[in-house]
Design a protein around this nucleic acid. Sequence first.
DNA 1: CGGAAGATCCACT
DNA 2: GTGGATCTTCCGA
Length: 204
Amino acid sequence: MAQHRSLPRSFFQRPAGEVAPDLLGHHLVRRLGRRSLILRIVETEAYLGASDRASHAWNDRRTQRTSVLFRRGGVAYVYFVYGMHYMLNVVTGGADDGSAVLIRAGEPVAGSEEMRVRRGLERAPRAGDLAGGPGKLCRALAIDSELNGAPLDSGPLILAEGSPPAPHEVAVGPRVGVAYAGAAADWLLRFAEEGNPHVSRPRL
DNA sequence: CGGAAGATCCACT
DNA sequence: GTGGATCTTCCGA
């Protein structure tokens, strides 16, 4: 098993709009017993906090669900939507910021067979089938609300150094599924590795 | 305490 | 391209 070098806390304690593109290419490591499921992150979205109508922290809205979102950067924020999907975010910035980065897609690096089973797929998956979307990604890595608040530098879920794309290989666009958010719906806070087939739809 | 919406996915036409 | 699944969370009354 390869050694993982965790990203330092300081990496996350910056604005979400910086962390989101910088996360591309790094590795999301899910430890399950002795096994490690590893995805290389290929798509992210930034949610800026109180000023961002698409964010759960919009208008400084603090509830039981969003409490983790207001912690200091470097922990996971996991929530449940549509009655069936979990979403994985990385909390960014400082305490009371409310900002985070949604991990939208990854390409398999290790453990793809177990991911295929967890996703309920019978045959060899095509690009994007395993983790080409935030709900799929959580399913593939067995991520649920138990990981809400978990630190990301050690433990069952780790963000480790990978192989980031060159800056000119990063595509930018508006976020997915936030049409209700007024002007914020048009903000260019979605980032993906240019041309990577594991990116979710609609493609950038 | 009820109702509505939701940072999605999949099957179907 | 459209609609259904499925249920937690939040807000207003």
